[in-house]
């Protein structure tokens, strides 16, 4: 089994209407439940916006602290889902469900190391 990271790519700008958001949250919860039931679940969660980010940079043995996201861009990481899957086809199946639930683009990436079992 391998670990895969699903990244939810969220566009900057207006948030959807409350009732739309409510439906999305409901669908995401169903998706998480499905992951757990299948034994694929490792961790998942939404992130606060890029305004809440803090960046740390090593400089000459010291660390520089700055406010704000690492890069300003049109999309930011809105949430992540870490899962276990036997291969990319299985991971893409979960990714497809995540895209439908969140209505947002999902990036699927493999981790470098296998799971332990």
């Amino acid at each position: 089994m391998k670990y895969y990271l699903l990244s939810v790519m969220q566009p900057q700008g207006e948030r959807p209407a409350p009732e739309v958001l409510e439906e999305i949250m409901h669908n995401v919860e169903l998706f998480h439940a499905e992951l757990r039931e299948a034994g694929a679940w490792v961790f998942a969660g939404g992130l606060h916006g890029p305004d809440t980010a803090t960046v740390l940079r090593a400089r000459d043995g010291d660390v520089l602290v700055t406010d704000g996201p690492y890069t300003e861009s049109k999309e930011f990481l809105g949430g992540i889902c870490l899962l276990k899957a036997p291969d990319l086809d299985a991971a893409l199946k979960w990714g497809r469900k995540a895209a439908l639930a969140t209505t947002l683009p999902i990036e699927v990436r493999p981790f470098m190391h296998e799971t332990e079992g």
């Binding site: 391998k2 899957a85 036997p86 291969d87 990319l88 086809d89 991971a91 699927v108 990436r109 493999p110 470098m112």
Partner: peptide
């Protein structure tokens, strides 16, 4: 290799 694209014939549904 790295993303784990499988070496097999897809399942009937796919």
């Amino acid at each position: 290799r790295d993303a784990g694209i499988p070496y097999r014939i897809p399942r009937d549904a796919d």
